[in-house]
Write a protein that binds this DNA or RNA. Structure first.
Length: 489
RNA sequence: GCCCCCAUCGUCUAGAGGCCUAGGACGCCACCCUUUCAAGGUGGAGAUCAGGGGUUCGAAUCCCCUUGGGGGCACCA
């Protein structure tokens, strides 16, 4: 078994491409086949090295590996079937196009874009299917000679044989198309650039691909590919068309309506394990009620015949949940490592490990960490700037309550030996202070929480206090008192 | 317009004729735990299996039709 993924570097790695790559990967690895990466950069105008880098980097990030093809963006090919970039296989396409031409299976077409456009418009007006009218297919030798003498560049069209194409799709079963309904399509542009439907067939044969697994959007293109590959005398691979990933409105997932770049999810702090697990379940399930799977487990369990036929909406809330599950499953050390890029370098180098327990159960995405933890590394004055005096009041209390709490807290904390400034002891002390002040614990803690973390919602108060240490805690309470002083009770 | 594909709670799904008065998960709502927020626990609402015909002793599961949705019909991929 030889399987491939064939992304086009005309944009960053798309969720849909990533999912198709994942299904190909899982199929190849499950069956012990070979997995190939081919860069489909025939559209030179839209392809860039930057996008190729984005695609390869993010595929690696997801943990998807391949046996053949470039392993690094712009890097050298690995494998005996190269080159693996279509832009480097132009001679082969030209030779195959010539073969088709010589056999009469393709012909030159001199129709101009304007002419083609006019025909298409007329067809639309007449409510006919828009397809090439075949004008250049039946040119006389004299007409052909005239065009050639003109020196006008010609495109090459495939003369689609009038036949019914049937194939047994790996996920959809028997499918049948009438190719008589197809127009002769262009396989090589007038400027010499070979087109997708043609190169994909040439390359799959050249790379001896046995299983073509791709999005359902290619299902109705498959009869074209089969007709082409027959005309070229190639072996027919098995085809499998997986369901599409959908926008919330059930249309094909698109940049316009959804966040489609894998890099964007990565930048928000989604874990690759969660992305992979989530994407795998968009259109597949093991047939049981289990739903948390590592890439290795997926490889073990994945089977193409359990893939669904209907499309699936990309549900962010479900992804969020799964991401949280994966974050919580990480050890503190592992999570600290992952958090590094989101934390100021000085903090990351020093006390990051100690911060992890404060946020581990609260993180949806790694990128949420700074919001939760900034109070730790920001200067006292900055934190004090995050709130105003009324915010210090307990939910059902007054600023006067806040003042009492802070007075009591300041005295209580100041009395603690810095060496004993630990969460357990702090809590006991604070509770005693609250009781002495005649306040409910919650009402007492709330103002302190705001003073210390700058927010009404924060990690656990006493752990935060311990982290800050006595002096900074006292300083923040002092700052809060100053603010309260400006407010008449 | 033509061709093709698809159709179980809002969403992801289990279900391959009787185990289904349709199960799980996300989300939602309660309650418990609790210093806030989370996490966790318990419970709940939520799908007459798109609709209609068949086949069968029996249908979410098989067949047909309808409806709805989607994809494709480029000198893009």
């Amino acid at each position: 078994m030889r399987v491939r993924m064939a992304p086009s570097p005309t944009g960053p790695l798309h969720i849909g491409t990533a999912r198709a790559s994942l299904y190909n990967y899982l199929t190849a690895r499950h069956e012990g086949g070979t997995y190939v990466l081919r860069i489909e950069d025939t559209d030179v105008a839209r392809s860039t090295a930057e996008y190729e880098r984005d695609i390869i980097d993010n595929l690696h990030w997801l943990g998807i590996s391949w046996d053949e093809g470039p392993q690094v963006a712009g890097g050298e090919d690995v494998g005996p079937y190269g080159p693996y970039r279509q832009s480097e296989r132009l001679e082969r396409y030209a030779a195959e196009a010539d073969r088709l031409l010589a056999a009469g299976a393709a012909y030159r077409c001199w129709c101009t874009p304007d002419e083609l456009d006019a025909v298409r418009r007329a067809q639309e007006a007449a409510k006919e299917p828009p397809r090439y009218n075949g004008r250049c297919r039946s040119l006389t030798d004299a007409e052909r000679a005239a065009f050639e003498a003109e020196g006008r560049p010609a495109a090459i069209r495939f003369a689609v044989p009038p036949e019914t194409i049937r194939f047994d799709d790996l996920v959809r079963g028997e499918v049948e198309f009438d190719n008589r309904l197809l127009g002769d399509f262009v396989i090589v542009r007038a400027d010499g650039a070979p087109l997708y439907h043609f190169v994909v067939v040439v390359d799959d044969e050249a790379m001896e691909i046995t299983h073509v697994i791709r999005g359902e959007d290619h299902l109705s293109n498959t009869p074209k590919h089969i007709a082409l590959l027959r005309a070229l005398g190639y072996r027919e691979p098995r085809f499998g068309h997986i369901p599409l990933i959908l926008n919330p409105d059930r249309s094909k997932m698109s940049k316009r309506k959804s966040q489609t770049a894998v890099s964007a999810y990565r930048a928000e702090g989604y874990l690759p394990e969660a992305m992979v697990n989530f994407m795998a379940f968009l259109g597949w399930s093991p047939g049981t009620e289990e739903e948390v799977f590592s890439l290795d487990e997926l490889t073990r369990r994945f089977e193409l015949d359990k893939v669904h036929k209907g499309g699936a909406i990309f549900d962010r809330e479900r992804l969020d949940h799964l991401n949280g599950v994966y974050i919580r499953a990480l050890s503190d050390d592992a999570l600290a490592l992952r958090l590094r890029p989101w934390i100021p370098a000085a903090v990351a180098d020093d006390g990051l490990r100690r911060l992890v327990p404060l946020v581990k159960e609260r993180l949806v995405r790694l990128g949420d960490a700074p919001e939760l933890l900034a109070f730790v590394w920001e200067p006292d004055a900055t934190v004090a700037g995050w709130y105003d005096a009324p915010t210090l009041a307990p939910r059902k209390g007054t600023v006067e309550d806040a003042r009492r709490a802070h007075d009591a807290a300041r005295d209580a904390l100041a009395a603690i030996d810095p060496a004993d400034f630990a969460a357990d002891h702090l809590e006991a002390t604070a509770r005693a202070a609250a009781e002495a002040a005649g306040m409910k614990a919650g009402d007492f803690f709330s103002p302190i929480r705001v003073a210390v973390t700058g927010r009404t919602v924060s990690p656990p108060l006493f752990d935060s206090l311990e982290l800050l240490g006595r002096d900074r805690a006292l300083a923040r309470i002092g700052l809060a008192l100053e603010k309260l002083g400006a407010v008449p009770a």
